[in-house]
Amino acid sequence: MSRHPLFPVLLIATIALAGLILGLTGDSWEDWLANAALALCLIPIGRASLRR
């Protein structure tokens, strides 16, 4: 069974959204997780720029 073409986009969006909300609940590892989840959004951009 082939994956839906939007699967990676929705997966990244779900993780980023979960991180954003989780970040509101605490000031320690919650913030760290929120920042990591948001930074995840930018990884595909960096990867595509490095690819030849």
Partner: peptide
């Protein structure tokens, strides 16, 4: 996903970049 078709016309490349950036920043 996250592929930019550089060998094609420049416009296709820009469209791929536009789609990629728009897609990954969706939630934010």
């Amino acid at each position: 996903f996250a592929k930019v078709r550089r060998a094609k016309a420049p416009r296709i490349g820009w469209l791929d970049w536009h789609n990629l950036v728009g897609g990954v920043t969706l939630a934010w």
